[in-house]
């Protein structure tokens, strides 16, 4: 049975591996260059050993100019779990239903459940290995970028660590379930694409910020300072929202800030002094960097649960005697 699974899906498996190898080669080449530049020019700016802040600033700008596109390109790698999962999952039952070979497969001497189990387990293992290894490579690639921008970016959280494998398993089971119900490979791939995008977007924008209650940082505004700080001061934290509050703690709207500007000018003081004098505070709602792994596990858990439900649909379809 294992030979059969390999022989049937060998073309797709080899294609997926080839594409990942090409992408990996690019990542290694660019990554080595990026790591080298970072270690040479930028690292010292963060561990406190740097001397000249202006040199740091120039180096940082140069670094962003050279490797900035890498961060945006990484967002495209969100397609990898979808591609690997759906291309192996959608034809699983659909192709055999379309060509009639399911009648051939189910009338040999292999009971249906064993047939399904061997196929599903082998393919899921292959998917986890491929996407897991690829995600590990991306995690290595992103080390400098993670230091600079944190791990919660769209081009970071989604493609690093363990969630890509969970996304891929979800795409695989979505493809298999769609194929089992729709009986057509092309329709199954389309449906799994739509489902993948819909679920990913919903989870990322609607659920991920709420995996735990966010922390809130409240700060006074230093009088006479040049500008108003933003964020938590730790670039690896995930800032959900920030704003100002009056002395009583009530959140202020941005229109209120504009009145302060005018009022400060009238009073002849800087904006920050004005705000300090009036007890205006700055608040930030955020998730600290330390929650990264916790969030990874929660999100992976969500997608694995969905995958399990979809797999149950496939099992039901196979058990039910119908063609």
């Amino acid at each position: 049975m294992i030979w059969l699974t390999w022989r049937q899906h060998r073309a797709e498996a080899i294609a997926a591996t080839a594409v990942l190898l090409v992408l990996s080669a690019i990542l290694v080449i660019v990554g080595l260059a990026m790591h080298a530049t970072f270690d040479q020019n930028i690292a010292s700016c963060f561990d406190g050993s740097a001397v000249d802040r202006d040199v740091c600033s120039t180096n940082l700008q140069a670094f962003q100019k050279t490797f900035g596109s890498a961060t945006t390109a990484l967002i495209l790698l969100n397609a990898v779990p979808l591609a690997v999962g759906a291309l192996l999952g959608a034809p699983l039952l659909a192709h055999e239903l379309e060509t009639g070979t399911l009648q051939l497969a189910w009338t040999q001497a292999v009971p249906r459940m064993r047939w399904l189990a061997v196929k599903v387990v082998s393919l899921m293992t292959l998917i986890v290995v491929l996407t897991g290894a690829f995600a590990a490579l991306i995690t290595w690639f992103r080390q400098p970028l993670d230091t600079l921008y944190g791990t919660y970016d769209a081009g970071a959280f989604d493609v690093e660590a363990i969630v890509p494998a969970a996304y891929a398993l979800f795409a695989f089971t979505a493809g298999a379930a769609a194929g089992a119900l729709l009986r057509r490979s092309i329709s199954a791939i389309t449906v799994s694409l739509l489902a993948y995008v819909a679920v990913r977007v919903t989870v990322e924008s609607g659920l991920r910020p709420r995996y735990r209650a966010p922390l809130t940082l409240v700060e006074n505004i230093a009088a006479g300072s040049h500008g108003i700080a933003i964020g938590t001061g730790n670039r690896s934290d995930w800032t959900l929202d920030e704003g100002f509050a009056d002395a009583g703690g009530r959140h202020l709207a941005s229109t209120d800030i504009n009145t302060f500007d005018d009022a400060a000018r009238d009073a002849g003081v800087s904006l920050t002094t004005y705000m300090h004098d009036h007890g205006i505070q700055r608040w930030v709602s955020y998730h600290p960097a330390s929650r990264f792994w916790e969030f990874q596990f929660i999100e992976a858990g969500i997608f694995l649960t969905l995958a399990a439900v979809l797999l149950a649909v496939v099992v039901w379809r196979v058990k039910r005697r119908a063609l």
């Binding site: 060509t99 009338t107 040999q108 292999v110």
Partner: peptide, 23 residues
């Protein structure tokens, strides 16, 4: 519908249009 290897091995089936794995 006895789904055991033994039972399945006693019957051979040739479906309509003689489907085969074309590749």
């Amino acid at each position: 519908t006895t789904n055991t290897s033994q039972a399945l091995s006693r019957v051979g089936f040739l479906a309509q249009e003689h489907p085969l794995y074309r590749r």
